[in-house]
Design a protein around this nucleic acid. Structure first.
Lengths: 244, 244
DNA sequence: GCCGATTTGTCCGTATGTATC
DNA sequence: CGATACATACGGACAAATCGG
């Protein structure tokens, strides 16, 4: 649902590009003509276009125009730049997702956990271990730590469906941003067991660690997401800035 | 060198945050007061702040303010969101970088290379294999393919120093954007040999594949960057958008 | 090489909407 | 309810880059 003007223009241009209404390497209509066609101000056009730039769909060139450089993606990407739950990712890729809760417990952060997660020592936490299947194939093991004071009332049932759905729809929490680090780490016995990986094939995992904040400024979640290496794929677009 | 107003304000706020002039969880001055202190329009302030938001330094909350959630980074990150050469990364992290050219050859793309790199079959290319050391430790092997027509006159000497320096300063090319895919792949004998990795420790590599465009809209570079898994680290910040 | 038209980039001021307190 | 804060949108001005004549 495009709530805003710039967002609806952005989506319109995006689908037009995806549907090849602009040829590869062609220029989009100039800002001034788009002002006419969309009936809005130039700023609004510019905002929509700048989103396409950061998506890597187009390049904006001063004095020339906005060039379409979109190439249809070769493959569905499971991990993307945004914040989304496993359930949302599955839906976006039109795949069947399922989640199995391996562990669900409450614990108090000791020094070791505090150091690893970023929560204060002594904080009351939920610790949840979940296995995510895509089309019945086990792909990801998640180790979630949730701050109990910010996320009360979690249950294994909720964890099996969607924790984010619970946070947003039941607790009315607003999730704002998530700081992530991607690394490659050695496989553990847990990974091996649940993801059915042969160590002779792969003895590492793709690991995404994230600290997530809500609108109260509370870092309410630390998650370590361990992905089967042969199914992990992360896409991004980068823009060149003049070196500092 | 801050050329623009919004950029200089952005940098000023950023260093102030990094130097803890705003406490963690504190709100920055409101937009209207910053309009006074910086002597500019509200739009310019908003532009600077929105950069801080996408950096994950602050969260902007309607009706409340802009909250500082910056935590000093635990560790230097080698791979970041932007486009930068190995030489630039080394400098930014205050480390000593060195590059050794393992292979330098010209070739014509056959179907297999075309499929892998995205260049057209028959295209004339440079193929360069380079080993990157950080503080004399071999960390990365790069396989570069450059389009000869867009990047004429490459030499092993240039490849040993910095190809991007040559492109930008000598050829006056403008590098615009780069589309990247991160994956985990099995180690090869080349990796093993040059990076001194014991397969019993790690039999995978972190691989970053990138297609890079210049301001002519030409995809002039395909690079596969293979990183030692134990030294690879990629940071990013994500913002929650309402699920579609 | 210069000039003028076109196009994107920066910046300003203002008005209105919406969320918070 | 009112004051304050950020969000969206408009219109205008000038700068900077590109391109054709």
């Amino acid at each position: 649902m495009p709530k805003n003007k710039y967002d609806s223009i952005y989506r319109d241009l995006k689908t037009k590009i995806e549907n090849k209404e602009f040829a590869y390497q062609d220029f989009l209509p100039s800002e001034n003509t788009m002002v006419q066609t969309y009936g809005c101000s130039r700023n609004t056009i510019r905002r929509a276009v700048s989103q396409l730039v950061s998506d890597g769909y187009v390049q904006a060139l001063q004095g020339k125009g906005v060039r379409n450089i979109f190439r249809p993606v070769e493959q569905a990407s499971f991990t993307t730049g945004g914040i989304e739950s496993f359930k949302e990712s599955s839906l976006r890729n039109h795949r069947k997702g399922r989640t199995k809760v391996l562990q669900f417990m409450e614990l108090t952060a000791d020094e070791k956990i505090a150091g690893r997660t970023g929560f204060a020592a002594g904080a009351e936490l939920y610790y949840i271990q979940r296995l995510h299947f895509l089309d019945e194939k086990p792909l990801i093991i998640n180790h979630n730590y949730f701050l109990k004071s910010a996320v009360p009332g979690l249950t294994p049932e909720i964890a099996e469906n969607s924790i984010y759905e619970y946070l947003e729809n039941e607790l009315h929490m607003t999730i704002v941003n998530s700081q992530r680090v991607m690394t490659v780490e050695k496989i553990t016995q847990i990974d091996e067991k649940y993801l059915h990986i042969n160590v002779n094939d792969y003895n590492c995992m793709a690991v995404v660690s994230s600290h997530t904040y809500n609108s109260d400024g509370v870092m309410f979640e630390f998650t370590q997401s361990r992905h089967r290496p042969d199914y992990f794929r992360f896409q991004s677009n980068a823009v060149r800035k003049s070196p500092v």
